[in-house]
């Protein structure tokens, strides 16, 4: 059996449908990413799989055990790093880790080998209170705490939100290392660039999985002709391209704007923009990224 299996998981809070018949499976040893915004239902899904809430309907198994009937077995086998809180701010780095080890009936020493590559970053601050660590360090400590009992499945709910780009990269390097040790990892993130580091990803929105595949396949399935435009006045350019007949969508994309249109439309657009007096105007054909795929799905959603 796969490490995580769900069958039509559904949960509502009052009139809000947090999760709508979500069915998916995560293979053993897979690094599986859930990509979606605040409110997409990611946390609800994690809470069900971590046996903290029961679904209204549907079933789920983690490491072969049923989340309803066999929750005690599951709790022994998983590591869970919730998005907001998982550390005791008034305990030191070392105390937090010892506490989590004792909860699971183990010691830091017993499983030190697994956390050593991560904990070595923290050891110089072992006596500092967790509350006085900054973003990147807190996340590393929380990861150590989630790993201290050698779980077979790891749930990480937005571990890198609010973390700077360099610390994010370090964190993902650590996940790659854990994956190579055979630990199954389910991780959620709003950062599209992190999607590329997963074996498979699910794009999630309003309680549903919109698309599931490898990042490469998702990118390959992008069908529109995608272009990038740049000029001296980017704000005005955004409106001009967006409202030009034949342009399907146009949005900011870092230093450029991305837009989709047929080649014939782009030729007319060039002439039009030249006449509007833009300086240093360039338009070039570009390959789609995961972020462009998300924007395309977003459009389909709105019709």
């Amino acid at each position: 059996m796969d490490a995580i299996v769900t069958d039509r998981l559904t949960l509502s809070y009052g009139s809000v449908n947090a999760l709508k018949e979500v069915t998916f499976a995560v293979h053993r040893g897979e690094l599986y990413g859930i990509i979606g915004a605040d409110g997409a239902g990611k946390t609800t899904l994690f809470r069900i799989l971590a046996t903290l809430v029961l679904p209204d309907s549907g079933q789920a198994w983690v490491d072969g055990y049923d989340v309803k009937a066999q929750y005690r077995e599951i709790r022994r086998r998983i590591g869970y790093m919730p998005g907001r809180f998982s550390l005791y701010q008034d305990l030191s780095v070392k105390e937090n880790l010892s506490f989590y080890a004792s909860v699971f009936g183990t010691t830091i020493k017993e499983n030190y080998e697994l956390i050593a590559p991560i904990y070595s970053h923290l050891e110089p601050f072992a006596r500092r209170k967790a509350g006085n660590l900054s973003g990147g360090m807190k996340q590393k400590l929380a990861l150590c705490c989630a790993l201290i009992h050698k779980p077979s499945v790891l749930f990480l709910d937005e571990p890198t939100t609010g973390v700077d780009p360099v610390s994010r990269q370090e964190f993902w390097d650590m996940l790659g290392d854990l994956r190579s040790r055979g630990i199954t990892i389910l991780v959620s993130t709003p950062y599209m660039d992190e999607a590329n580091r997963c074996d498979r990803i699910a794009l999630m929105r309003e309680g549903e999985f919109m698309q599931v595949d490898t990042p490469q396949h998702i990118i390959a399935s992008y069908r529109d002709e995608l272009w990038a435009a740049e000029s001296d006045n980017m704000f005005r350019l955004l409106g001009d391209i967006r409202h030009f007949e034949g342009v399907k969508r146009c949005y900011t994309f870092g230093v450029e704007h991305h837009f989709t249109a047929d080649a014939t439309v782009v030729e007319r657009l060039r002439t039009y923009l030249a006449a509007r007096g833009y300086k240093e105007l360039t338009i070039r054909r570009v390959a789609a990224t995961i972020e462009d795929c998300y924007m395309q799905l977003e459009d389909k959603y709105h019709g």
């Binding site: 939100t161 609010g162 704000f235 955004l238 949005y251």
Partner: peptide
């Protein structure tokens, strides 16, 4: 922070519009 790509873009368009009206924007981001 933690916001999806579509919503982030809508937000930045509001920032652009406010700056066009002369409001100075001081922003941190990752």
């Amino acid at each position: 922070g933690g916001v999806d790509p579509a919503t982030r873009r809508q937000f930045w368009e509001m920032i652009y519009a406010a700056a066009e009206q002369g409001i100075t924007i001081f922003v941190t981001t990752h």
